[in-house]
């Protein structure tokens, strides 16, 4: 079984960590995010290791610096996707066009993962009418 190590970091450590990892040739496997029931944001930077994944997690921050200048599109696409799925922002990422969800999604806000299922069903009914 692969290893999964969770390491807590602060918002200020995100960019220096990414620069260090890139310099060492470490692959960014993915950036993941989810929200706790009370709305607390969890954003994880998953770096590949020989045994699995080291997950560097920032908690409680809704605005984060982008690492797309360091990891290029390997970071930009996950960052844009997270911004469209939930209300977490990565500073410096071009959001002039949607990457993932349609422009009309929930009155042009998207963010399906933080919208309740009841609201999504209501919205769908409205679209059909």
């Amino acid at each position: 079984m692969q290893e999964y190590n969770k390491i807590t970091i602060t918002k200020e450590e995100i960019v220096p960590l990414a620069e260090k990892m890139r310099a060492e040739g470490v692959t960014l496997a993915m950036i993941h995010a989810f929200k706790e029931d009370d709305g607390t944001a969890n954003v994880s930077y998953e770096y590949q290791t020989a045994k699995g994944v080291d997950s560097y997690t920032v908690t409680g921050e809704n605005v984060l610096p982008s690492i797309s200048g360091i990891y290029d599109l390997a970071a930009e696409w996950p960052e844009r996707e997270i911004m469209e799925l939930m209300d977490i922002t990565f500073e410096g990422v071009d959001t002039s066009e949607r990457l993932f969800l349609p422009e009309s999604m929930l009155s042009e806000q998207g963010q399906i993962l933080i919208t309740s299922m009841d609201d999504l069903i209501e919205k769908k009914k409205g679209d059909k009418e």
Binding site: L85, L99, F100, L101, P102, I112, M117
Partner: peptide, 12 residues
């Protein structure tokens, strides 16, 4: 490139 034309909300 633009994606998302077959989004089915599976994660939701």
């Amino acid at each position: 490139v633009f994606i998302g034309y077959n989004h089915r909300g599976i994660e939701k």
